[in-house]
């Protein structure tokens, strides 16, 4: 399957018996591990990035609340606050919430139809600040000039959501790493089994002058081919699953596509999984063989 001239000498000349790459369970284990790592990572990352972008949209927003029972005074104060906000070039998206908006906000708690004229609702003005300095400036101005106006900035409420996104991303990454570590452990067992199976031949090779590297290269090569096959299969299955999930989600909501939800750096992480799986298999195989061979003279 690999042209002979790209094979190590030991493989080309059959120093150890040929073994089918698909023989044994290792390729399937690698495939399963890569599949799990890719799925976990993609799910975790797209969830995290969803939460992040949701937060980013709201983070710059703030609400000015004016508690004033007298409707005339309330109107004056709203006008004053709006003027201050409009004067500031770094404030945008100013929107005075109508009574209907406010009623809709409180109805879930008070019950539909229970919000009457006699219930004094505060006035609310939504806006977005370009940066924290603009927000601080507005806060100062409002404190100085409009009594009973209070700024509620969304970032304060969104801080836990930001943390949640981090926890999601780090958990996904940790899970993927643990899955790859489990794969490495299985590679160790598989290499040891191979060394055991060929112990007699390896002993003879040593006695007639073979360097450890002859045997190490052979194992590296075989585990590279096996892991590459398994990783490719696992990765393709993961991609197929994503496409199916995307198809299903498209019917529910266009905004929820799993693949579309993966940011560019999520794609890099996901693509790295099969590469790391192969590299890790090769390095693990080399270290395991080297250690085992060193025990003999």
């Amino acid at each position: 399957m690999i042209p002979e001239r790209y094979q190590p000498r030991a493989e080309r000349f059959h120093f150890l018996p040929r073994e089918k790459v698909t023989g044994g369970t290792l390729p399937w284990i690698v495939a399963l591990m890569v599949l799990l790592a890719v799925l976990g990572l993609a799910a975790g990352v797209s969830l995290a990035s969803g939460v992040w972008s949701m937060g980013a949209g709201l983070e710059s927003g703030f609400t000015v609340q004016i508690v004033e029972p007298n409707p005339d005074l309330k109107a004056d104060k709203v006008a004053a606050v709006t003027a201050i906000l409009e004067d500031d070039t770094e404030i945008s998206g100013i929107r005075v919430l109508s009574d209907a908006d406010l009623t809709a906000l409180v109805e879930p708690w008070l019950g539909t139809g229970n919000v009457g004229e006699d219930l004094p609702l505060p006035a609310m003005i939504d806006a977005e600040a370009a940066n924290d300095r603009a927000l601080a400036r507005v806060r100062q101005q409002l404190d100085a000039s409009v009594e009973s106006a209070r700024i509620d900035d969304h970032a304060r409420w969104l801080a836990p959501i930001g943390k949640l996104a981090w926890v999601l991303a780090i958990s996904a990454l940790t899970a993927a790493l643990l899955v790859l570590a489990a794969m490495a452990a299985i590679v160790v067992l598989s290499v040891r089994a191979g060394l055991g199976r060929h112990a007699e031949t390896i002993n003879v090779l040593h006695l007639i002058g073979a360097e450890d590297s002859v045997i190490t290269h052979l194992f590296e090569y075989r585990f590279a081919v096996t892991a590459a096959l398994g990783a490719a299969v696992g990765f393709l299955i993961a991609m197929a699953l994503f496409l199916i999930i995307d198809g299903l989600l498209a019917g529910v909501s266009s905004g929820l596509a799993a693949l579309a939800g993966l940011p560019w750096w999520g794609w890099i992480l996901v693509l790295l999984v099969p590469v790391i799986a192969v590299l890790l298999s090769v390095i693990t195989a080399r270290i395991t063989v080297e250690r085992a061979l060193k025990k003999a003279l």
């Binding site: 000349f13 031949t201 090779l205 007639i208």
Partner: peptide, 16 residues
């Protein structure tokens, strides 16, 4: 070496 032919057995030291 059982999995190798006579030829390959004799060739082994040279190939190594």
């Amino acid at each position: 070496v059982d999995h190798l032919t006579s030829f390959d057995n004799v060739a082994l030291p040279l190939r190594i």
